[in-house]
Amino acid sequence: MEAYEKIKKTRQSGRATSVDYINGIFEEFTELHGDRRFADDHAVLAGIATLNGVPVTVIGIEKGKNIQERMERNFGCVSPEGYRKALRLMKQAEKFGRPVICIVDTQGAYAGAGAEERGAGAAIAENLYEMMTLRTPIISLMIGEGGSGGALALAVADRVWMLENAYYSVVSPEACASILYKDAGKAPEAAEHLRLMANDLYGFGIVEKVIPEPESFTDAEGTKHFFHQLRRDLSREIKHLSHMSRDTLLSERYEKYRKIGRYESDTAPTPAKARRVFFGRK
């Protein structure tokens, strides 16, 4: 049950969180607060910074380092106002032609009554809708937990890069096991079947790059080297994406999602023979 072991490790504290990526990769980070509608969601840590001298917008989901921080950050479970803050800053980035870098690490969107009252579904939907045509490059880094729609809401991007031990899933293995097998204890089995690790998703064409991790994030040298590499790769990719025409950027972004589970269409209005399906990378 290799996948589940990895997931358990990924959920433990001691991994680098968004704040470490922001400090390790960017300069001059200035946090910007609030969605200008309702509140400032502390599960989302966002602002403007430079990457190798280039101004960028950085939006991270932050879980917090200790129990006090975690409470304040709501354990990285984002409320609708967090997604709306992210969208506000993405629109701002679009206006000023700044690339956007999202750092995703969440077990899922916050499932509280207030989140539901303020439109959790609507907020996520709006991000997917707007990100697909945001006229500036977007790169999303999946650094730990990628919990379903709550993670996808910051990951409709030109490039999705994923750490080798990160997971990204439509449903948590526990919930999947309890729904399908009526036994949450079968989570390891479900985790295996869901194909939710970075290498699986690379194979499906859902992520473009699997990032090797340092031996341990507690090893200062290794971590420093890791951030150095990532900074170089990000900088290079942003440069590449920024040189593309906006129309090409957007059509490639759409096509990337469009081809995931693409079937041949019969636009003729009569029933025709069954069609076959194509998936991801050939």
Binding site: M132, L196, I206
Partner: peptide, 10 residues
């Protein structure tokens, strides 16, 4: 799996 989640974006 994740192929179904991607339909939301698509």
């Amino acid at each position: 799996g994740m192929l179904s989640l991607m339909q939301m974006a698509k």
